[in-house]
């Protein structure tokens, strides 16, 4: 057992998979010699050498094309796209190529690859380095979308993503890199598509993911202590596959649903979740379904503005209080 930050867990996860499988290679901009712009991949070059840990030019299309071609010919590659915003310059490779090829070829081509990326806001980087792309990716049939909120989940879900035979978008929330937690020694690998109940309560189900998980948990403690409201908090951990069964179970039990989403509101992942809930357990509901999201705007940079934009603990507390009556 070791206490690791989420940042340290990234290299721990990649190393675990590279030791296990010689077909795993890792490439991206500044990931090898420099250890990554977020210092998430330090030490990998030293352990695995320049044939397996590779610095690339600034060529996002070539990076994703390379891992796709490598995956279809027997490797299990991992690529880093430095900031998730940069997927906009190579999105064709994701949505037209990776996502469609197995289906179009009637199952002839397998693409066991992972695209890892720094996602989300909270660090005052401004609108072009703070995007939440989970809802972009979720809208594309054929891409799995994974987002851990703790160091141990990062390792276990990353391992599962590497071992998965389908393309996985692995979203590392930049705002969570400093979060610490215990990670067991030895092989850590979880299953994709399994949500975790982080807090059990009787009054409402709060469904969330990523950076919003610790905020929802903090809000739940405040609501319990100060207002006697007892919340269930579900960490989805992946959006595709989506653990609908877990969501429905706790919504039915509590009669209420709140989603807490970092992505901008329109067509955010919670829109899908609320539509499933409305359709499949309408008669078990005691109240309207409520989404707490970032508004329909690009993210502003200054701290005061960004903090009032992405759902905060205060906003979560305030909204739940208002809507629980």
């Amino acid at each position: 057992m070791a206490e690791l930050s989420l940042r340290e867990a990234v290299a721990r996860a990649i190393a675990q998979e590279m030791r296990r499988d010689p077909n795993v290679v890792f490439l991206g901009e500044d990931v090898a010699a420099a250890g990554g712009v977020f210092k998430t991949t330090t030490g990998l070059l030293e352990e695995f050498g320049p044939e397996r840990v590779i610095d690339t030019p600034i060529s996002e299309q070539a990076i994703l094309g390379t891992i796709m071609g490598a995956a279809m010919t027997g490797l299990r590659p991992i690529a880093e796209i430095m900031y998730s915003d940069f997927f906009a310059v190579c999105w064709d490779l994701v949505v037209n190529q990776m996502a469609k090829t197995r289906y179009m070829t009637n199952g002839q081509v397998s693409l066991p690859l992972v695209m890892k990326t720094g996602n989300g806001g909270g660090l005052r980087f401004g609108a072009q380095h703070s995007q939440s792309i989970e809802n972009w990716a979720m809208a594309v049939p054929g891409i799995k979308v994974v987002m851990p909120s703790t160091p141990v989940d990062l390792v276990g879900l990353f391992a599962a993503s590497v071992r998965d035979d389908d393309p996985v978008l692995f979203l590392e929330q930049k705002a969570l890199y400093t979060v610490k937690g215990d990670v067991p020694d030895g092989d850590v690998c979880f299953e994709l598509g399994k949500a975790v109940v982080r807090r059990m309560g009787a009054d409402a189900a709060v469904v969330t993911i990523g950076t919003m998980v610790p905020r929802a948990l903090e809000a739940a403690e405040i609501l319990a202590k100060e207002h006697g409201i007892d919340l269930t908090v579900i960490d989805l951990r992946s959006l595709i596959p989506l653990d609908t069964a877990c969501i429905l179970e706790h919504v039915v039990r509590t009669g209420r649903l709140f989603t807490v989403e970092e992505n901008p509101r329109v067509v955010g992942w919670g829109a899908e979740v609320t539509s499933i809930v409305a359709d499949e357990c309408f008669f078990d509901l005691d109240a309207p379904l409520v989404r707490i999201t970032t508004p329909y705007i690009p993210l502003p940079s200054a701290g005061e503005l960004e903090d009032k934009t992405i759902p905060s603990v205060e906003l979560i507390v305030e909204t739940i209080l208002k809507r629980m009556v």
Binding site: L64, G69, A70, A71, G74
Partner: peptide
């Protein structure tokens, strides 16, 4: 699009 993908196959070879 296939030019980088073909490049990836060459990488694998």
């Amino acid at each position: 699009a296939h030019i980088p993908i073909a490049t990836g196959a060459a990488f694998s070879a």
